[in-house]
Design a protein around this nucleic acid. Structure first.
Lengths: 245, 245
DNA sequence: ATATAATTAAAACATTTGTTTTAATTATAC
DNA sequence: GTATAATTAAAACAAATGTTTTAATTATAT
């Protein structure tokens, strides 16, 4: 009878018990879908494109996954796990400047590869730029923890002497410097034809961003110190006004 | 006879001569399409959604524009012109630090509004993140000139003492800090619930980014100077290697 | 005022897309 | 080896979407 009921719900997987061969087609579908979702977003790619690229039958998506939405959710979940594995590369025993460099490098590595499934980072970057309902879980499971890591490094670097809002802005300044290379790849390739984000240049990029950001943080600390020394002026000190003529 | 030929090509605009009423529907379609393209990209929005939002008939898109593609191109062209008008806010007579701040503020204003048609900047940001064939004209007409402005400011700030590749990276660091607020709005709203990019905070954001970037540039200049003083070491000086145990 | 063109409105079309169904094949258990 | 379930393959479907067509309406020129 259970079989009869299952026959009435044909769009669902019949049994969690899966043959090794079935696992292989699932894997191929996820891989193909990941690549194309990362490249063109959720709407543009069609199921026919995906299944053709995976070399499986059209119905495989609706058989192994409920529908296109669940396939996308599954693909994004795979990217989650890869990201989590990547976040552990920061060694809290090193000096904060080194930690920042390692954190940036890990992020860039994840975004620009060549991590083995190269689409993981790009897919997450795209999801942030063009959110679907799946964004919430992405933020909570992957982005927030990584954000906490960065925030801790920043607190160590500033001695916690800056207000929270400023810490947040600094974090976004650092992340923004990384994301632009992933999210605006097409733009950069057109502006600077020999793409400066080639895979083997990830380390050079990380060095640049870390150095640039350390300088930025130092400037903000200096500014805060100057302000606290002349507390009457909350904005920047006005330059001497030259009398007209 | 010309009329007969026109009747055979019904998908084209019959005549460039347009009544004032027709101009109004064109305007409403462009406005509605701009908002929804900026929000959801090119593929997701349907012509029915757009025409309904504009309060015009479904066929208006294919009558006044050839098809969805040309409508998108037209919308993007409107955004171009608004961007060009916005790029003139930098006064070359001011000191470079001021120019940088003005440049950043103009860019942010364009991205985060509230410029009157608020979708202009967002649409361009989206086009860069998810390029269509229309990206090329966007880059050449809008981005490259703006980029040149920024590059000139940077050369003034560094005294042209850094290699070209490093100048490019600095420019991308600055632009990346701005773009993240537009391209990852959804992410930021989830991470920092009271959005720090509220419209009236554009000035504060521009101050932060300018200050941060000036500090970053100073750090890179320092680094270059240190390296040129000890030219044998091209990478950063290796720390003393501790012998094992 | 009337004729002609331009524009709008409504319905119809053709295609694409996600999904289901039905049949064929393969693996698994007894 | 046979029966049963799981998986794959192929075809069929239904809904949605971009586009056309045809008719109605409005503006413009003579």
């Amino acid at each position: 009878m259970a079989a009869a009921i299952a026959a009435l719900l044909p769009a669902r997987r019949r049994r969690p018990r899966s043959s090794p061969n079935a696992d292989e087609t699932r894997r191929r579908v996820v891989e193909a879908a990941g690549e194309v979702f990362a490249e063109h977003g959720f709407h543009a790619p069609t199921i026919r494109q995906i299944t053709q690229r995976a070399g499986v039958n059209l119905a495989a998506v609706n058989y192994h996954f409920r529908d296109k939405d669940e396939l996308y959710a599954t693909v994004l979940h795979h990217a989650h796990r890869a990201a989590a594995a990547c976040a552990l590369t920061v060694n809290a025993a090193r000096p904060p400047r080194e930690q920042l460099r390692a954190c940036v490098r890990g992020f860039l590595q994840h975004l620009l590869g060549p991590a083995r499934p190269a689409w993981h980072g790009r897919l997450m970057a795209r999801e942030m730029a063009q959110p679907t309902p799946a964004l919430d879980s992405l933020v909570e499971e992957s982005m927030r923890p990584r954000c906490e890591t960065l925030a801790a490094i920043l607190r160590a670097l500033t001695g916690n002497r800056l207000p929270r809002a400023q810490h947040n802005r600094i974090g976004l300044s650092i992340v923004g410097q990384c994301l632009i290379y992933s999210q605006n790849r097409a733009l950069i390739e057109r502006l600077f034809p020999p793409a400066p984000a080639a895979a083997n240049q990830v380390d050079a990029l990380a060095d640049h961003i870390a150095q640039f950001s350390l300088g930025g943080i130092a400037a903000l600390l200096n500014q805060a110190k100057r302000r606290s020394q002349s507390p009457a002026i909350t904005r920047r000190a006005p330059r001497r006004k030259l009398p007209a003529a």
